[in-house]
């Protein structure tokens, strides 16, 4: 996600320069043919170009709205994941009756919270097509990582493991049916968030919305110098390239934000959000451990203190 005020031109330039260069050559040719060689037949009446520009603006606005809708929905889903993770951690840390638990084992509440942290990291990696196992090995241990390697959909498998741990807690009498249902509802919310993220990831914008504005932008940019050459003469290339750049930039920008899980600067900042989830949940877990006088090895799995992810060059991932 871009958090800086200005977007440098170099981010648009690599994708736009070929189109702009061709248009500049064409614009110069039109201007020279009209103004120097006086072939006035090359000029088009500006009247038909104006409705085309209007239609193009509608198309571009529609696509930009649709792309922004996808980007914003992705951000909302991850916001919802932060909230649900905190709720689940609170439930794990306060609802389980630990008087019945074997004091020699790692408290189930901590294992469940670590599963929730793992889910956030696994979902991020799943959406970015990145391996999550190095992180899972640190968070849940090698045995759990090996077990999860059997699954293609790792975040769903992490939720399944959490569900099984809750079942175990119920069988051991640590939670009653009401509490179980309440926690299970939040696990279903996680599944829904994951499903919605996968929908955005796997369903592109309808091709008509993506393709047609691009074709219309090209058609408009090629016709534009013919429409303005009568009035602007040799200044046609300057005006035409500037106007074309505006349309091409709008076309490119809306295309880029339509995929919010593609590991680019336009991404939902999933690394920063999953780090926030981890820091918040660990804080809650460590506080609860202090209150209950438990000092096991599980917390020590973090070898170093983690900090918030700060933007690098104005971009936060």
């Amino acid at each position: 996600m871009i958090v800086r005020d200005r977007l440098p031109l170099k981010r648009i330039w690599p994708q736009a320069w070929r189109r702009l260069l061709m248009l500049l050559v064409f614009d110069c040719t039109v201007a020279v043919i009209y103004s120097v060689f006086h072939h006035t037949w090359i000029s088009l009446n500006g009247l038909p170009i104006a409705p085309l520009a209007s239609a193009l603006t509608i198309f571009l606005a529609f696509r930009t709205n649709a792309a922004y809708g996808r980007w914003w929905e992705a951000r909302q889903l991850w916001g919802n994941l932060v909230n649900t993770s905190r709720s689940l951690a609170r439930q794990y840390l306060t609802m389980l009756d630990e008087s019945l638990e074997d004091p020699r084992r790692v408290p189930l509440r901590n294992t469940l919270v670590l599963h929730q942290i793992t889910f956030a990291h696994a979902l991020r990696c799943h959406l970015r097509k990145q391996s999550s196992f190095p992180e899972i090995e640190t968070l849940l241990g090698n045995d759990a990582a090996d077990e999860l390697r059997r699954f293609k959909n790792v975040p769903a498998a992490v939720v399944l493991r959490a569900g099984k741990l809750l079942k175990q807690a119920r069988e051991e009498g640590m939670i009653d049916s009401y509490k179980w249902i309440s926690i299970d509802e939040n696990l279903s919310v996680l599944a829904n968030i994951q499903g919605a993220c996968e929908r955005i990831k796997n369903t592109p914008l309808p091709r008509q919305f993506d393709y047609l504005p691009g074709v219309l932008v090209d058609a408009f940019c090629w016709l534009l110098p013919l429409a303005i050459v009568e009035d602007l003469g040799l200044m046609t290339p300057l005006a035409s390239v500037l106007i074309s750049f505006t349309f091409i930039a709008a076309d490119l920008m809306s295309r880029e934000i339509s995929n919010p899980f593609d590991n680019t600067i336009h991404d939902t900042p999933m690394t920063a959000l999953s780090r926030t989830i981890e820091m918040n949940l660990r804080e809650q877990m460590e506080e609860t451990d202090k209150e209950r006088g438990w000092s096991g090895a599980l917390i020590q799995r973090r070898r170093q203190v983690v900090h918030d992810v700060s933007p690098v060059d104005g971009f936060v991932f």
């Binding site: 991020r124 990696c125 992180e135 640190t138 992810v309 690098v312």
Partner: peptide, 15 residues
């Protein structure tokens, strides 16, 4: 140093 710390933040979780 600060930029390096924030780059590839998830690597902090690697073994």
């Amino acid at each position: 140093q600060s930029r390096l710390q924030s780059f590839f933040a998830e690597a902090d979780n690697y073994p």
